[in-house]
């Protein structure tokens, strides 16, 4: 199915989904009138707009003979940077800055196919030292540095 992989169809479907989700979540917010707008008035306008554009885009994709296709992605380039950030967020409060940063750097280099493992230890030591110097001692960021 060419349509299903086209940028127009996918963006339309995603926008329509966002619009419908916003309407669903926002159904409890009072809408009110134009002169006395409730908390739901503006969000409903936006959600309807998003859904409308979503439908137009889907229609566009269906009408076009050769719709523009979504370019393929590389899993590792997306997965590892995200994982690095998520892991950092999970451990920072417990393990402190130094260990969290080491984990972040170690996971992030997995995302590139150009990584040279001989460089990685130097990168980690240098980067963590730099971060401590700039953020902890320089800017005075209030952050736990070590696990204890």
């Amino acid at each position: 199915m060419k349509i299903l992989r086209s940028t127009d169809f996918l963006s339309g479907a995603i926008l329509l989904a966002i619009g419908i989700a916003a309407l669903y979540i926002g159904q409890g917010y009072r809408i009110g009138t134009a002169s006395q707008m409730g908390p739901g008035y503006f969000p409903v306008m936006l959600a309807l707009g998003l859904s409308g554009i979503g439908i137009i885009l889907i229609f566009n994709a269906w009408r076009t003979l050769e719709p523009e296709q979504v370019a393929g992605g590389t899993l590792r380039a997306v997965f590892f940077p995200l994982l690095a950030v998520v892991v950092f967020g999970l451990v920072i409060d417990r393990l402190g800055l130094v260990i969290s940063l080491m984990l972040l750097l170690l996971i992030s280099v997995l995302g590139s196919d150009q990584t040279r493992w001989k460089e990685v230890p130097f990168l980690i030591v240098g980067a963590v030292a730099f971060a401590l110097l700039v953020f902890v001692y320089g800017v005075g960021l209030q952050v736990k540095v070590w696990p204890v």
Partner: peptide
């Protein structure tokens, strides 16, 4: 870039 992007990621996180 292989040395640069881990640093950028680090700055973002901190």
């Amino acid at each position: 870039y292989r040395l640069l992007f881990p640093l950028i990621l680090m700055f973002c996180a901190i």
